[in-house]
C-alpha cells in the first residue's frame, strides 16, 4: 500500500503547493430506510473547497459506491485498483442500492494548502 502521507506531500510539492495541515478523517455514511424498506438516505454531501481529500480505504467501501467532487468522480467497481483518488470541492458519497447495511465509513486524508 502506498504511504499516503508521502504521496500527498510529493503530489502537492510537484504542483507547487505547500501543505499547511493534514490529517486522517473518517466520514460515516448512513443508510436509513423506513419500515417499508424504502431508502430515505444513503448518501452524504460535504464541502471540501480549497482543500484536497484523498480516499484511503476504497477497498473497504461497497462495490457501486459513487464519489463525486468538483475535480474527480469515481465509481467503485470490482476491478477498481488500490489507487489514490483525489477529491476537491463539494464531495458527495453515494452508496449503491445494493448496499443493505446501516453504516459505511470512508477514510480520507485531508490536506490543506497555503
Amino acid at each position: 500500500m502506498i504511504n499516503i502521507e508521502d504521496y500527498a506531500e510529493r503530489q502537492m510539492r510537484r504542483r507547487g503547493m505547500e501543505i499547511t495541515y493534514a490529517r486522517m478523517l473518517p466520514v460515516v455514511v448512513r443508510r436509513i430506510a423506513d419500515n417499508n424498506g424504502q431508502v430515505l438516505v444513503n448518501s452524504m454531501e460535504f464541502d471540501a473547497y480549497n482543500q484536497y481529500w484523498y480516499l484511503v480505504n476504497a477497498y473497504e467501501l461497497p462495490v457501486g459506491t459513487r464519489i463525486t467532487s468538483d475535480t474527480h468522480v469515481t465509481l467503485l467497481e470490482t476491478h477498481t485498483n488500490d489507487t489514490m483518488e483525489e477529491f476537491s470541492g463539494k464531495i458527495k458519497i453515494e452508496l449503491p442500492a445494493s448496499f443493505t447495511g446501516n453504516v459505511c465509513q470512508a477514510l480520507f486524508y485531508q490536506v490543506l494548502v497555503k
Partner: peptide, 14 residues
C-alpha cells in the same frame, strides 16, 4: 466534462 491542465495544477472547471 471537468478539465485540469498542467499536471493537475489548474482546474479549469466544468
Amino acid at each position: 466534462l471537468s478539465l485540469e491542465f498542467n499536471n493537475r495544477s489548474y482546474h479549469m472547471g466544468h
